[in-house]
Simulated scan of single mutants.
Amino acid sequence: MELDLFDETGKVTEEQTRLVETLLEFAGTHLDLPADTEMSVTFVDDAGIQVINRDYRGKDTPTDVISFAMEDEVEEDIAINFDLLDEKMPRNIGDIIISIDKTASQASEYGHSFDRELGFLALHGFLHLNGYDHMESKDEEEMFGLQKEILDAYGLER
């Protein structure tokens, strides 16, 4: 998987960046994603994610993680069937934005490590990029069960 990681805070350590990278690669393998799948993760502070949350979701408050799935359909969009193209194109599944400030406060609130919360948020966003959601109870059960399964198999348990 091609994974671009950006730290706009200067607070994320090399080990934490590597944790997110290896966890998402592990999750990609778990979901049988093609090797040429592409995505990005950007680490921001609360002020940065609040602007994104306000501008794209109409909620003027910081949040922990936001996912922008490339394959989400919007009414005005025209679907492109990439299988019909002559050249094989990589599958870009989208972008994840994670607030490092929220990561720290939620880790403290939930009584686990910063790394565990960072991994949880990265995986949560990743699953959204792959079509999982938790708007309905049945979907929530499936998504959260898969999150736990992947985190446990990776070794990042609560």
Rank of each mutant, 00 (worst) to 15 (best):
D115P: 04
I80H: 07
K102P: 00
A47Y: 08
N92D: 13
A107V: 03
G48I: 00
D36P: 01
I49D: 08
D86C: 05
F114M: 02
D101Q: 04
K102Q: 10
A47G: 09
E75H: 02
E109V: 03
M70H: 07
N81E: 15
I52Y: 03
R57H: 14
N81I: 11
S113Y: 09
F82C: 05
L84N: 10
I66R: 01
R116A: 08
E73A: 12
F114E: 01
F68R: 00
K88H: 09
S105A: 11
T103K: 01
D36V: 03
S67D: 11
D95W: 06
D101S: 10
V41A: 04
V41T: 03
N53S: 15
E71C: 05
E73R: 08
D101A: 08
A47H: 08
M70L: 08
D36K: 03
D72E: 15
K102E: 13
Q50E: 15
V51L: 07
A104N: 08
I100N: 04
E75K: 00
S67T: 12
A104R: 12
L85E: 14
G111I: 09
I97R: 06
S108P: 00
E38A: 13
Y110H: 14
M89Q: 14
A47F: 09
S40G: 12
D55G: 08
N92K: 03
I80A: 10
G58C: 10
D64H: 13
D36G: 03
V74P: 00
K88Y: 04
T61A: 14
R54N: 11
S67E: 11
D115H: 06
I66M: 15
Q50N: 10
T61H: 14
N53M: 10
D95M: 05
F114A: 00
L84P: 00
S113L: 07
N92Y: 12
I97D: 04
E75L: 09
E76A: 14
D60H: 07
D95R: 10
D115L: 07
G48V: 03
T61I: 13
I49A: 11
K102F: 08
E76V: 06
E117I: 06
I66K: 02
S108V: 11
D86G: 14
D55C: 02
T37L: 13
T42V: 13
T42M: 11
E71L: 12
T63D: 12
D95A: 12
F43C: 09
I78K: 11
R116D: 01
D60K: 02
A69V: 07
G48P: 01
D72G: 02
S99Y: 02
D46R: 07
I96V: 14
R57T: 07
H112T: 09
I96W: 00
A104P: 02
I96M: 04
Y56S: 11
S108D: 14
T37K: 11
D115G: 06
A104S: 15
Y56N: 12
S105H: 03
E117N: 12
E117H: 05
A79D: 09
A104Y: 04
I98Q: 05
R54F: 03
E38L: 08
N53V: 07
Y110P: 00
S105Y: 01
G111N: 11
S108G: 12
D77F: 01
F43A: 09
P62K: 02
Y110K: 15
T61R: 14
L84H: 05
R116K: 13
A69K: 04
T103E: 02
E73C: 05
